[in-house]
Computed example of a mutant assay.
Amino acid sequence: MNEANRKRPLSLDLGPCHGCMGCVEMCPEIVGWDDETERPYLKRQEATEEEIRDAMACCPKDCFEFTDE
């Protein structure tokens, strides 16, 4: 299996997040928006690099990381 297509555990660090919503716009199938906290949340705890690559690239605070690294 291609490494980019393997599902991996994903985490979202909300500490540095400033709520730009880029991740929600780029990957709405993985990242949702909580109107109460005005912060993103993970809809899924696993993703492939291919699925989340755009959100990771556009995040100005590097809030996403794979936890198996």
Rank of each mutant, 00 (worst) to 15 (best):
R6T: 11
T37K: 14
C23H: 01
L12D: 09
R53M: 12
E50T: 14
P16I: 05
D68V: 11
D35C: 03
E29T: 14
E65R: 15
A47S: 13
A55M: 09
G32M: 02
F64A: 12
L42E: 04
G22V: 04
N2Q: 04
P28L: 05
E51C: 14
A57D: 12
C63L: 11
N5W: 05
C17H: 00
I52C: 03
Q45T: 14
Y41R: 05
H18N: 10
T37W: 10
G22H: 02
H18G: 03
P60F: 06
M21E: 13
R44H: 13
C63T: 10
E50Y: 08
R53P: 01
A57H: 13
E46N: 06
E29W: 07
R44I: 05
T67E: 12
C17L: 00
C27R: 01
G32K: 07
E38W: 02
G22E: 02
T37S: 14
A57C: 12
I30F: 12
T37E: 14
I52M: 08
K7N: 02
C20R: 06
G32Y: 06
M56F: 02
M56K: 07
Q45R: 14
C17K: 02
N5Q: 02
R39N: 07
D34W: 00
G19D: 10
V24H: 10
E65M: 15
C23K: 01
E51W: 11
D35H: 08
V24A: 04
A55C: 09
E50Q: 15
L10T: 05
D35A: 11
C17A: 01
A55K: 10
R53I: 03
R8M: 05
E46F: 06
T67C: 13
N5Y: 00
A4K: 06
D68Q: 13
G22T: 03
P40Y: 03
I30K: 14
F66R: 11
E25H: 13
D13W: 00
G15A: 08
P40M: 06
L10W: 02
C63F: 07
D68F: 09
S11E: 10
D13N: 06
C59M: 12
G32S: 05
F66V: 08
C23M: 01
D68P: 11
M21Y: 04
L42K: 07
I52L: 07
C17F: 01
N2V: 03
G15E: 08
R44D: 06
M1Q: 05
D54H: 15
E36F: 08
C27N: 07
C63P: 09
M26I: 00
F66D: 09
F66G: 10
K61L: 12
D13Y: 00
P60L: 10
H18T: 10
I30L: 15
C59W: 11
R39G: 04
P40F: 01
F66M: 10
D54Y: 14
